[in-house]
């Protein structure tokens, strides 16, 4: 009988019984925020796909082949190495996701020292990723790419494309040519990877704040490490978005 009255009391507080889905308010709100953020990123990526598709029959301003554009690797000047650098960035981000989830696991065991250690590794991983992205941007900007200009016009892949369409012998194509190409290639690259990189940057800032709280014992006193879990959700989301940026920008 007494348990019945307890249930009645909780119902007046949440108007829905116990905490919905058995997760706390903060975690549920983080999930809903991430859902809305997923809408934003998917809009950007679908817009990228649609604009790229709109150039698929364009013979004179063909969409550049990512392998011809993002083919640099630090300390390997002039060597054609497509996909290698972004794969390294992907590896760094996946590893930082693992250390984040290890910090959450240590938090469930109330192991303050391990939480601090793994969070520090996650911060280092995030900073490394940001450094890689800064380097990639520097290369791309150095080749003349701006928000409103792109010099990856006629390339070897464009020549191949023209061959397939049967116009191959009508235009002279050389891979070395640096002529204006589709502007959205550069602008969408800067907008989408910039938006993602800004998420990583703010994620690193959040991680540093939570890390300091861990070190100062705030969560030890509070009795639980749920803030680590919440910032972890955000961090994994950033990794999730990168999976699709990697797929649509570099692989396809």
């Amino acid at each position: 009988m007494s348990s019945h009255t307890a249930v009645a009391e909780t119902q007046t507080q949440w108007a829905g019984g116990r905490s919905p889905f058995n997760v706390s308010y903060g975690k549920l709100m983080m999930w809903i925020f991430l859902l809305s953020d997923a809408f934003t990123f998917s809009s950007l990526l679908v817009a990228y796909g649609a604009i790229r598709f709109s150039y698929s029959t364009d013979l004179f301003t063909p969409w550049p082949d990512p392998a011809q554009v993002f083919n640099h690797f630090p300390l390997a000047h002039g060597i054609h190495l497509p996909l290698l650098f972004v794969s390294l960035m992907t590896l760094i981000l996946i590893l930082s996701s693992v250390t984040m989830v290890l910090a959450v696991e240590a938090g469930a065991r109330m192991d303050k020292k391990a939480v601090g250690f793994y969070m520090l590794l996650t911060i280092v991983g995030g900073a490394m990723f940001l450094g890689c992205q800064a380097w990639e941007w520097t290369q791309f900007i150095g080749e003349g790419a701006r928000l409103d200009q792109n010099f990856f016009g006629f390339t070897a892949s464009a020549a191949e494309h023209a061959q397939q369409l049967g116009f191959g012998d009508k235009v002279h194509w050389t891979p070395a040519d640096r002529v204006p190409g589709p502007v959205p290639f550069a602008s969408l690259f800067f907008i989408v990877t910039g938006f993602h990189g800004f998420h990583v940057l703010s994620g690193v800032v959040f991680l540093i704040i939570i890390y300091l709280n861990v070190v100062f014992g705030t969560y030890e006193r509070r009795g639980h490490y749920e803030m680590v879990e919440k910032v972890g959700l955000y961090w994994h989301f950033v990794d999730l978005v990168w999976v699709f940026v990697f797929t649509f920008y570099y692989l396809i």
Binding site: V98, E105, A108, H224, E229
Partner: peptide
């Protein structure tokens, strides 16, 4: 029970599955 501060207890599932996922 205070909804704003109610925290379900966190459970550790061990690290094996996490590394497997990696």
């Amino acid at each position: 029970y205070i909804p704003e501060t109610y925290i379900p207890t966190a459970v550790s599932h061990g690290t094996g599955e996490l590394w497997k996922t990696f």
